[in-house]
Simulated assay, not measured.
Amino acid sequence: MGLKAGIIGLPNSGKTTLFNLLTRAHAAVAPYPFCTIEPNLGVVSVPDSRLERLAEILKPPRVVTATVEFVDVAGLVKGASKGEGLGNQFLSAIRGVDAVVEVIRFFMDPDIPHFMGDLDPLRDREVVDIELMLSDLEIVERRLQKVQELFKKTSSKELEKERDLLLRVRDALSEGIPLRKLTFSEEEKVILKPFQLITLKPIIYLANLDESEQARALYQKMEAWCKQEGVPLLPLLVKLEEELQEIEDLKERTIFMQEFGLKESGLTAFIRETYATLGLITFYTFGDKELRAWELLQGSTAKEAAGKVHTDMQKGFIKAEVINARELLEIGSLEQAKALGRVRLEGKDYQVQDGDLLYFHFSV
């Protein structure tokens, strides 16, 4: 199963509009709370200029991009951790994701009322983040109570470790500290993993802007807070991105972007940032049928990468022929790269690097 990013935020913040831009799935959009009830799921291609350049020199019959999955869930409201709005349903859906994208409203639109009455991005961010921490706190306190009861009966070292860890986590959440700001050992991460704590997941704040001076001023305040906290904040003019997608001619789209001083679509930058936040890199395979980009968790081995292509390749892995796309593009030909001895052989424990082109040898 691939890694997923969950799109969250207050009602009418632009979550589902963003989801539609990403996936063109045409999920329902309406100017009233809880339009999104069941989670929307969509798979999005990852923009990759290396893949385009590799296709030019390798000339495959088919090109397949790497992907990332997005989940759009119901808007969160104050009190969601206690079941307000669609709280329980929302929190259940978001626990299964691997990273969180929090959409924050910076735009004014009289046709789309703000759920809390007025425009205040810093307050909106705090409302959502507090609800996530309260939800995590409830889970931790419930488990801590069970562990303490068990510890009285059987004072094992394992229970003592879990108890001490849960106490530290509980104290942090009670003080309003998201768990991603704490440092955990690998053993502690294993203990916490089954709880799917939301504030332990990496987060991206996405500013849904318009072109007003008010939005710019509010963005600067949020940017200062994010820098202080060490979390990413990405600007996105969602309405502008909608207009961009309506322009089918690429040259016209480029001219339109230049008029607004854009080097690339903000959506493209956002997808790349989400991909990196999920801890993913890209490797490539090339054969008679296709050139394909594959998403892979950073730090994975060649044998694990082979398993992405086919389980038989992982089971019967022998070796992999490897050349990085950067080097291949400099040489300009796979045949020439082989002739120069630049395609090397690596074993099962080789750690795949971002941009590697791999050819797997296996036996089943």
Rank of each mutant, 00 (worst) to 15 (best):
M1Q: 10
L10E: 00
S13A: 15
T17F: 00
L18P: 03
A28F: 02
F34C: 09
C35T: 15
I37H: 03
N40Q: 06
V46M: 08
P47G: 11
D48T: 10
D48A: 08
R50P: 07
V64L: 12
A66Q: 02
V68C: 09
F70R: 04
K78P: 02
K78E: 15
S81Y: 08
L86M: 13
L86W: 07
S92Y: 03
A93W: 02
A93D: 10
I94K: 01
I104G: 01
M108T: 13
D111W: 02
H114K: 04
R123L: 12
V127D: 11
E131C: 11
M133S: 03
L134I: 11
S135F: 14
D136V: 12
I139N: 03
R142H: 09
R143S: 11
Q145N: 14
K152E: 13
L159V: 00
L159S: 01
R163H: 01
L167T: 12
R168F: 00
R170K: 15
R170E: 15
R170T: 00
D171T: 12
I177E: 01
L179M: 10
K181L: 12
E188Q: 13
K189Q: 15
K189C: 13
V190W: 05
I191S: 01
Q196T: 07
I198N: 05
I198L: 15
K201G: 07
I203K: 08
Y205H: 08
L206R: 01
N208D: 01
N208W: 00
Q214T: 13
L218A: 06
Y219R: 06
M222S: 09
E223V: 00
A224V: 02
C226Y: 07
K227D: 13
Q228H: 14
V231G: 11
P232L: 08
L236M: 03
L237V: 00
V238G: 05
E242K: 12
E243V: 03
E243D: 12
I247S: 01
E248V: 14
I255G: 09
F260K: 15
G261T: 15
K263V: 10
S265D: 04
S265R: 06
S265I: 09
T274K: 01
T274G: 06
A276C: 00
L278C: 12
I281E: 05
L291E: 05
L291Y: 06
L296F: 12
G299A: 08
G299C: 07
T301A: 11
K303L: 13
A306H: 13
K308V: 14
D312A: 10
I318M: 02
A325N: 05
R326M: 04
R326Y: 10
L328H: 08
A339Q: 14
A339S: 15
R344K: 15
L345A: 03
L345V: 05
Q351L: 14
V352L: 01
V352R: 02
D354T: 01
G355F: 04
G355Y: 02
F360R: 05
H361C: 02
V364Q: 08
